[in-house]
Nucleic acid binder design. Structure first.
Lengths: 339, 339
DNA sequence: TTGAAAGCGCTAACAA
DNA sequence: TTGTTAGCGCTTTCAA
């Protein structure tokens, strides 16, 4: 026998398919308790599993959501996905996860695919501004979507973002509060807004403390460990700083390696502060001081917004505040000390 | 206007819906080039997106696959998911990802949910043996599935596994080859078969080298960093060993912490070898020597098997071989040295 | 309180 | 080479 349908249940229970459909959807009104129980019993007996595709075809609701991340292997995203999945599941939605590798081409393909799969909404963490094609794709489909992790200025589009400027500011302030005056900064790719914002905030805090940030102390990284290692190694061989702010934790790891190989002690000779607070960062020795994003919560919230938008058509953005997590990789300098 | 359907395309192009369906499905036979082009043009113009739910309803193929992992936040799994997603996408399938937290209850719920969503197959990484309910669920639905990462003895069920015994053996052999004779081992939970297998192989290698493994040197961990730290700290305060094998990298991280706090130098006073080779492990100082699983490739292969099973009904298991990755956390002892 | 019937958007015989 | 028609499994008027 193939899969059972409501027809089979109806026949077995001696009622019409309408009635079966009614108990399936918990329609309270108008139905004798007896009938309902009879149907339920039959369903139970045969372990009936309604076909959601068929339902979706008529209700225009698939109860599926798309989630596009740059790369799930980037340790920043699993937590986010987890938050998203938990919230989605709680609200009876399933999550289709896609990796765009920050390529517009892939992003656009997935956007189209997801719409063909009739997802009810899309959660999108796109590199930067949406490509025109992506935007068209999204809007022509009239599909609710919320953006995550990257800003879209002056948009009425709902989204979940971090106050990156504030994060950069906190990092810089922490360092200047510890009396550091010779500070370098490793940013992410310049075309990514998040990088820019973090650098901006960082600059602001240094300025407040009257600390200079020479242009040559701003290293342009790419958010990866490997290149951060190389950049840092070269930089540290030729320059003297007492602290570095890495725009994300992965790059901070690379800096650890470089310092280690050069025999530079953290935090005694060099303070390092990261950004993100990815889980494994507590495994570093010494433990990394960093700026935390509430990643799980952001994933959860993003889904919440998305579902609200789907169900009520209401829509608003949320900006999360980063927090400073002081661990062991930053150290207070005696006032006026230069190494 | 609502979403466009093949009806609209048919009307616009002045053909029947059958014809539209035909070009949609690239049916070569019988259709003038002119008609095909006309239809394609119309589709192009309005950016037509066929409804896959409707198609699935008739073809009995949703082109969706379910992937159940214990927890995507465990750094072992993102790589796997990535491999799975890439392969799925290449073959035109989408992936619904679910976190079971190793709870049978959640696993069963997801299994049911996925079947109701009409996924074409399921990739399942279950804690241990499948619960009876899960098994029933899977079999009553007649849904193709492949198991991942954990064994199911004497089953004709296809799956993708690692030779964990061999991995444990390699770890032990590496240590004895380096002349270590006082060795401890931190395992995962005893009820997880993988743990057992790794320990078994480890024991075998020590035996071959005539090295004792006292019962008190076998620490039962839980694959987490935190408890590994606590276990290791207590153990290292009261015992003298020159090497520890951690059954996964996360626990190795915890041991690093403990050693660090006790002032024990790695690898000079203590060699550590891990298991898995999760990405961030190269960020540890010194870099961790470990047993590598080809995680991405396993994810890819698992999807390949699953799709084969779906499409050809053929089915076979694959066992991957672990490899030893020597980095900096293990050190050769002079023969006959005891500390 | 219940059921008959239409139809969601698509595919697949079968006919022409 | 093309079209007509009957469903896929479900929900939803509308009628009884």
């Amino acid at each position: 026998m193939g899969k059972l349908t409501i027809k089979d249940i109806a026949r077995e229970a001696g009622v019409s398919i309408t009635t079966v459909s009614r108990v399936l959807n918990n329609k309270e009104e108008g139905m004798s308790q007896k009938t309902r129980e009879k149907v339920l019993r039959v369903m139970e007996e045969v372990n009936f599993q309604p076909n959601k595709l068929a339902r979706g075809l008529v209700t225009k609701r698939s109860n599926m959501l798309g989630l596009i991340v740059p790369n799930i292997s980037n340790p920043f995203f699993p937590e986010l996905c987890r938050g998203a999945e938990d919230e989605a599941n709680k609200r009876n939605y399933s999550l289709i996860i896609c990796n765009s590798d920050d390529q517009s081409q892939k992003e656009e393909n997935y956007l189209r695919l997801l719409q063909e799969q009739q997802v009810d909404g899309i959660l999108l963490s796109s590199k930067n501004r949406l490509s025109k094609t992506s935007k068209n794709q999204l809007q022509s489909g009239k599909i609710p979507y919320v953006l995550f992790d990257r800003g879209e200025e002056a948009s009425n589009q709902s989204g979940v973002f971090l106050d990156n400027e504030r994060g950069g500011y906190l990092a810089g302030k922490h360092l200047t509060d510890l009396n550091h005056t010779q500070i370098a900064c490793m940013t992410g790719p310049t075309e990514i807004q998040n990088s820019q914002q973090r650098l901006l905030g960082f600059r602001r805090s240094l300025k407040e403390a009257s600390v200079q940030l020479p242009q040559s102390f701003v290293l342009i990284g790419d958010f990866q460990m490997e290149s951060a290692y190389r950049l840092a190694k070269e930089f540290l061989q030729n320059n003297t700083v007492t602290a570095i702010f890495a725009s994300n934790d992965l790059m901070a790891c690379g800096i650890y390696q470089a310092a280690h190989e050069l025999g530079i002690q953290i935090p005694d000779q060099l303070s390092i502060i990261g950004f993100d607070d990815i889980p494994l960062v507590t495994a570093l020795i010494p433990k990394l001081t960093t700026i935390r994003q509430a990643t799980y919560e952001m994933g959860r919230k993003a889904i919440e917004l998305l579902i609200n938008e789907i169900e009520n058509k209401s829509s608003e953005g949320v900006v999360f505040e980063p927090t400073l997590i002081v661990r062991e990789s930053t150290k207070k300098l005696k006032r006026g000390v230069d190494i």
